[in-house]
């Protein structure tokens, strides 16, 4: 049965499923990044998610906040690079917005992605349209706020769709940030690899919540 709220233990299990989904997608992410960068995004994300599994699996968490901030620290420390900084910030900033929350529902989903999107934009300096992960993260955050009063399965499905649309839209953008920016118009037609990662994370969250 789909769930309306998740306990800290369920959040942990959801993020373990996210970790497995990213690890399985490593070749996809590597190819996406090779088109625009130096092709190390898949390895970095996979390494980060293996570190997440080490820190989450079999652990008890007192709060949902702690699940996400632990995940963010594990990614930041194990990955390094731009990806480690921005994905680590995504989960740390998102998690910190859940201080005091006893469970994870639609409102927490909205609070999480609003803070995550702001945190990533502040850290990396990217905004919508720069062909970065922000192009899937920012629309996901906006949608999460719009559906904060819906049931969690419905909300996460809408948020995952928004991220997917944002990733698709990034194909029509010219990169202006990071290593890809020097490719200019050659980046047209390819989605940003970080945006692809965001969609995989959200799809795995949706699949867990809908099946939970």
């Amino acid at each position: 049965m789909p769930k309306e709220t998740l306990s800290p233990a369920e959040c942990r299990d959801m993020m373990l499923a996210v970790a497995d989904a990213i690890i399985a997608a490593e070749p996809v992410l590597t190819d996406a990044d090779r088109a625009l960068g130096d092709g190390d995004h898949g390895i970095g994300m996979s390494r980060g998610m293996n570190a997440v599994k080490d820190k989450l699996a079999g652990q008890e968490f007192e709060s949902v906040e702690k699940v996400f901030t632990t995940m963010g620290m594990a990614m930041m420390s194990s990955m390094g690079g731009a990806s480690g900084a921005v994905f680590g910030t995504l989960f740390r900033a998102g998690g910190k917005a859940l201080t005091g929350a006893e469970s994870f529902g639609s409102r927490e989903l909205a609070a999480f992605f609003t803070a995550a999107s702001e945190g990533v934009q502040t850290r990396g300096g990217a905004k919508v349209g720069d062909k970065t992960m922000v192009d899937s993260l920012a629309p996901a955050a906006e949608k999460a706020v719009a559906v904060a009063e819906s049931g969690l399965p419905e909300a996460i499905a809408a948020v995952a769709d928004a991220a997917e649309s944002g990733k698709e839209a990034s194909k029509d953008m010219i990169a202006t940030m990071g290593r890809a920016k020097t490719l200019g118009e050659k980046t047209l037609g390819h989605p940003d690899a970080g945006a692809v990662s965001v969609t995989i994370i959200l799809s795995a969250m949706r699949d867990y919540i809908v099946a939970a």
Binding site: S78, G80, G84, A85, G88
Partner: peptide, 12 residues
Amino acid sequence: CGDIFAAPPPDI
């Protein structure tokens, strides 16, 4: 020192 072609994380 970072990982291969990746910046060192903040704790390092």
